[in-house]
C-alpha cells in the first residue's frame, strides 16, 4: 500500500495500466454487445427481455464492488492518512453512482414487462435505492467543507458506516420474501450457476467490460485529482509568496 501512497509513483503505475484497461474494456464490450444482442438465445420464459440482464446484472455487481472499494480506500485514508486513498475514494463515488443509476433504471425497464411493475418497495430494490443516496451523500459531503481535509474525513466516515448496506443488498433476497428473485450466479455455495452457458458468455464479457471501465475511469479520475491538488498547492504558494 505504501508504494501507491506516493502520488508521483502512483502516476507512473497508473499511466502504465491505463492503455491496457482501456483496451480490455473496448474488447470485452464489443464481445459482450455482439453476444448479448445478437448471438445469445432468448430465454424460455422471458423471451428477448433476458437481454436486459447483460446490462442490469453487471452494473448491479459493480454497484457493490465500487462501494466496497470506496469503503476500503476510506478506511485506509482514515487510519493511515494516505493521500492517494482519499483521491481513490473520491474518484470512485461518481462511477458507483452511475452504475447504481443504470442498475435501477434497467431494473425498472425489465420489471415492467416481466413483473408487471416499474418499481416495488421490496427489500432488494429499496436497499439499492439507499445505496444510490449513499453515493450521492458521499459526493456532497466530500465537497461540503472549505477545508478539504474535513470533507474527506466526514465523507470517509459516511462511506464506512454506509457499508453495512452492502451485505443487506446482497442477502436481502435470501433473508426476506422479495419480488426480486435470488441470485443466479453463486460462485460459492450449493446452488452454483443457474444460467445457461450460452447466456454466460455475454454476461461475463459485460462484467469484465464494466470492471475495466471502472479501472479506467478511476485511474483517470485519480490522475485528475492529483493534478487539481498540485494546482491548488501552486496557487496557494503564489498567493503566499
Amino acid at each position: 500500500m505504501h508504494r501507491f501512497a506516493n502520488p508521483t509513483r502512483f502516476l507512473r503505475i497508473a499511466n502504465a495500466i491505463l492503455p491496457w484497461s482501456a483496451a480490455v474494456m473496448a474488447l470485452s464490450l464489443g464481445v459482450g454487445l455482439v453476444y448479448g444482442l445478437v448471438l445469445s438465445p432468448p430465454d424460455y420464459q422471458q423471451g428477448e427481455t433476458v437481454r436486459i440482464m447483460y446490462v442490469h446484472v453487471p452494473s448491479s455487481w459493480m454497484t457493490l464492488f465500487v462501494y466496497t472499494a470506496m469503503a476500503i480506500a476510506s478506511f485506509v485514508y482514515l487510519v493511515w492518512k494516505h493521500p492517494v486513498a482519499d483521491l481513490a475514494a473520491r474518484a470512485s463515488a461518481p462511477v458507483g453512482a452511475a452504475f447504481t443509476v443504470i442498475s435501477l433504471s434497467t431494473g425498472a425497464l425489465w420489471g415492467k414487462p416481466m413483473w408487471g411493475a416499474w418499481w416495488v418497495w421490496d427489500a432488494r430494490l429499496t436497499s439499492v435505492l439507499i445505496l444510490l443516496f449513499l453515493y450521492l451523500g458521499y459526493m456532497a459531503l466530500a465537497n461540503a467543507f472549505d477545508d478539504r481535509q474535513r470533507g474527506s474525513r466526514a465523507a470517509a466516515i459516511l462511506a464506512l458506516v454506509g457499508w453495512v448496506n452492502i451485505p443487506i443488498i446482497k442477502f436481502s433476497v435470501d433473508w426476506w420474501n422479495t419480488l426480486h428473485q435470488p441470485a443466479s450466479v453463486n460462485p460459492v455455495g450449493e446452488s452454483g450457476i443457474s444460467i445457461d452457458a450460452s447466456m454466460l458468455v455475454p454476461l461475463f464479457a459485460m462484467a469484465i467490460a464494466f470492471k475495466a471501465y471502472y479501472v479506467t475511469t478511476l485511474l483517470m479520475g485519480i490522475r485528475r485529482e492529483i493534478a487539481a491538488a498540485k494546482v491548488r498547492t501552486l496557487r496557494l504558494a503564489e498567493v503566499q509568496g
Binding site: P41, Y44, Q46, G116, L179, Q181, S194
Partner: peptide
Amino acid sequence: ANVLAKHDENYMPPEVAD
C-alpha cells in the same frame, strides 16, 4: 387488486428447457 409475476433465477434458451 393487482397481480405481479415473480420469476425464478433460472435462465436458459427454450430448446434447453424442452
